[in-house]
Design a protein around this nucleic acid. Structure first.
Length: 271
DNA sequence: CTTTACGCCTGACGGC
DNA sequence: TGCCGTCAGGCGTAAA
């Protein structure tokens, strides 16, 4: 579930409450996430201070003491600020209790998420070292997309969802950005002009920025750090809207699977 | 090298 | 009411 805007919403929601705090306790109720939560996590964290809460792609990076806690929310994860005395519910796998008696509580029904600890440069971590540029950063633009796509035959939707090309564009926002750019999701990436790649890069930035501004998209279970759902779902133009009219041209929105992922597009205004 | 298919896991939903 | 198949926001890995 959480794509970049949801992870950024989470980051902004927790940063002010955790930066400057020290870790009092770590409670692991179920370590079996995508990879096991490190057994000695409490020993690494206890007493250490949180210096910063950053984001790279869909990874949250909590700078704690002399290391970094890497958190990924997978498909169904969320991170809430709670009173540590509040009873945990099913799928509340981990609490990071802070000195001020608040706790970060990780919930992840499907357990596709991850909690990892590194004392090295997190950018060099195997999970992060091959990520492409941040879509809201300066290196990402149409020229970059155009250059990277030359000779590539795969569908442009799969191309922009490849985290080695650009980090953090997931299924919802890939569909939305391609609609905004007027590009058919199955079009081979290498057969898109520079001008249209400029359009696409701009559409990705616009879509992600607007979603962050709305607190993300809640389809099923995403909630922000205070438990609030994201409001961007009301602003989706194609995702989940098969059979409805396109707002741009009154064509009918279609859905089909592209690269094993459900895709939504307007066959009239996306070419 | 690029591209595709497959799991990991739980829960929600539709059809019967 | 229940059971069963299908699908879901991600992504590493194996294999073609």
């Amino acid at each position: 579930m959480p794509e970049l805007p949801e992870v950024e919403t989470t980051r902004r929601g927790i940063a002010g409450s955790v930066i400057g705090q020290c870790i009092a306790e770590v409670i692991v109720r179920n370590p079996m996430l995508r990879w096991p939560v490190p057994r000695d996590l409490e020993r690494s964290l206890a007493g250490a201070r949180v210096h910063a809460v950053e984001r790279r792609a869909k990874y949250l990076l909590l700078r704690i003491g002399d290391g970094t806690l890497i958190i990924h929310l997978g498909m169904s994860g969320s991170l809430k600020l709670v009173d540590p005395d509040a009873l945990p519910e099913t799928h509340d796998h981990l609490d990071i209790v802070l000195d001020d008696r608040h706790a970060l509580r990780l919930r992840d029904p499907r357990r596709f998420g991850a909690v990892l600890w590194t004392t090295r440069d997190p950018a060099q971590h195997p999970l992060l070292c091959r990520l492409g540029p941040e879509p809201l950063g300066e290196e990402f633009d149409g020229g970059y997309l155009h250059e990277r796509s030359r000779g590539r035959r795969r569908a442009v939707k799969n191309f922009v969802m490849d985290s080695r090309v650009v980090a953090g564009v997931g299924n919802i926002y890939a569909n939305e950005a391609l609609h905004l750019a007027g590009i058919h999701p199955a079009r081979p990436a290498g057969r898109i002009s520079r001008a249209r790649h400029e359009q696409l890069a701009g559409a990705i930035r616009t879509t992600l920025s607007a979603a962050i501004g709305s607190g993300g998209t809640t389809l099923r279970d995403f909630v922000g750090s205070a438990g609030e759902p994201g409001a961007f779902g009301e602003k989706l133009h194609v995702y989940g809207r098969a059979g409805l009219r396109c707002g741009q041209c009154a064509g009918l929105i279609r859905s089909r699977s592209i690269g094993q992922r459900s895709s939504f597009y307007c066959p009239v205004c996306q070419r």
